[in-house]
């Protein structure tokens, strides 16, 4: 980076009041010695003022209140879903154990067993593909 480029970058810190005293002094001295840099400073100062005068439209207070209520409700629901999931898993596991250790007909046991095996194979296949895709380019879905 040449010296002028260095000072042009320092100009940002000058405009945003983020330079140390020493850097600030060096930048001001450079501006006195380099009228082109001083002209650029005037342009960037104008841009800085224009940018500062721009305002983003904020949602109304009631929209934020609705926003807040929704987040709070979803946080609460999440706990409900976790408990529901755990409860369902425990119940299904219990029922399966009951089935396999009961006097139920062998055909029923075989049917449920084969179904379970199929579901396990499908699940592990889906999870494996999902994990593999995650390792690849995270941005492959982006149109280039």
């Amino acid at each position: 980076m040449d010296e002028r480029e260095h000072f042009r970058i320092q100009m940002m810190g000058f405009l945003d009041d983020e330079l140390s005293d020493e850097d600030r002094r060096a930048f001001v001295e450079r501006c006195y010695a380099d009228p082109e840099l001083a002209t650029e400073l005037a342009q960037y100062r104008r841009l800085h003022d224009i940018t500062n005068s721009m305002v983003l439209r904020e949602p109304e207070d009631f929209e934020y209140e609705r926003f807040f209520s929704r987040v709070a409700a979803r946080v609460e629901r999440r706990l409900g879903f976790v408990l529901l999931g755990v409860g369902a898993s425990v119940t299904v596991a219990f029922l399966l154990l009951e089935l396999f250790f009961s006097d139920a007909k062998p055909m029923l046991k075989i049917g449920v067993g084969v179904g379970l095996l199929g579901a396990t194979l499908l699940t592990q296949s889906v999870v494996r593909v999902w994990l593999k895709l995650r390792k690849l380019d995270r941005y492959q879905g982006v149109r280039r």
Partner: peptide
Amino acid sequence: VMSRLFHARRRLKERLEPHL
């Protein structure tokens, strides 16, 4: 941060040139 601000502002300045 400073150099990214510089490049971003430079590109914005180019687009607003007649007003500066």
